[in-house]
């Protein structure tokens, strides 16, 4: 690791001010991704501003809004009684990721800021526009089995690695951010970016801002499914994953929220395709049609071509399993 200075912040304002004072400073929460990348010489902050003592550790459910503080750990969130009971899709997604040790360290704010697990991003001997803008992308013609099939660009075909974020996308989460200019709310769909010509920018969070919390309203406490497909049965990143929430009325789908992980630079949603499910009776045929439409415009890069078929089958199974939890009269 490169040398850096360290500051233990005592509250969010102290953290933001200190972070803003030093060029190249970074916030650290759990550090499970950042320290790893620092060891690989991919990240080299000049200063770390430790957020672990600024508070922001509460989970509350008031007036229909679940609020999760940014410093709540992944395990604390997954096993929190309010979340287990009313937001089981979120619990299921969090527990599908990483290991218990990592989930005890990793924070809910930090989870959103995870960087890609693209091998070329990690390997400083290769070209990567995300790590070094303008250097090229060795994944395009390389071993790109884990890479994106939707929304990619000729500059970057990396995927976002989070499981938690796939559920947060389906649950229409709002992100609370605070910076030197004050606080603001960001809709989940507007938070992560597609690579385009600037893959070095993962999110729309400003340089001076930190995440302070998450707000969730959609619950899908009955008909839900997080389905993760990976190379081994545990402790591996998703090849593809699906987060599904359904609401039904009079035997038909009233509301459907579907997000996919492992297929794009951000958790992928297709709001237009979701609308076609509304008013339909759940059936394999309906779900297959939806899956086809979800993957329209998908393109493989050789080693990851299989994800287009796998992704569609994953959607159909996740939707069917979520639907099976309901009563369709």
């Amino acid at each position: 690791m490169n040398p850096f200075t360290y500051h233990r912040a005592t509250n969010p304002s102290d953290a933001i001010a200190d972070h803003n004072r030093v060029n190249g400073a970074k916030f650290i929460g759990g550090g499970t991704n950042l320290i790893d990348l620092m060891k690989e010489n991919v990240e080299h902050p000049s200063r770390l501003v430790d957020l672990n003592h600024v508070g922001l550790r509460e989970v509350s459910d008031r007036e229909g809004v679940l609020k999760i503080g940014a410093l709540v750990t992944n395990n604390e969130a997954a096993y929190h009684p309010l979340i287990e009971k009313d937001f089981p899709l979120l619990s299921e997604a969090i527990l599908a990721g990483a290991s218990p040790q990592l989930r005890n360290m990793a924070t809910c704010g930090g989870n959103l800021l995870q960087r890609t697990r693209c091998y070329y991003f990690y390997d400083t001997a290769t070209a990567c526009n995300k790590r070094e803008p303008g250097s090229g992308c060795d994944a395009l013609k390389g071993y790109n089995r884990i890479h994106a099939v939707l929304g990619a660009s000729d500059k970057c075909i990396a995927t976002h690695p989070s499981d938690m974020c796939v559920a947060l996308a389906a649950l229409d989460t709002t992100i609370l951010a605070e910076g030197t200019k004050g606080v603001r709310k960001i809709a989940f769909a507007d938070f992560h970016r597609l690579p385009g010509d600037t893959p070095e920018k993962d999110t729309n969070l400003a340089e001076d801002e930190m995440i302070t919390g998450l707000e969730l309203r959609a619950r899908f406490s009955r008909q839900f499914k997080y389905l993760k497909v990976r190379d081994r049965s545990s402790y591996a990143f998703a090849l593809v994953s699906a987060a599904v929430g359904l609401e039904s009325e009079n035997g038909v789908i009233k509301k459907a929220a579907v997000a996919m992980g492992g297929v794009a630079h951000k958790p992928w949603r297709d709001f237009e395709a979701e609308k076609t499910l509304h008013g339909e009776k759940p059936s394999e045929e309906v779900f297959k049609k939806f899956a086809t439409s979800f993957f329209k415009g998908a393109a493989g890069y050789g080693h990851n071509d299989f994800k287009i078929e796998l992704g569609q089958r994953t959607l159909v199974r996740a939707l069917s399993e979520a639907a099976a939890k309901g009563v369709w009269l």
Partner: peptide, 29 residues
């Protein structure tokens, strides 16, 4: 592995298991 992938460095911090390779000593003052 020194990268949080193998668990050989697991210790208990305030009763909770963590990977000691992916955290800094200063963070545990």
């Amino acid at each position: 592995c020194d990268h949080g992938q193998c668990g050989a460095c697991t210790v208990l911090a305030d009763g909770k298991r963590i990977n000691s390779c992916l955290t800094l000593a200063v963070m545990h003052d």
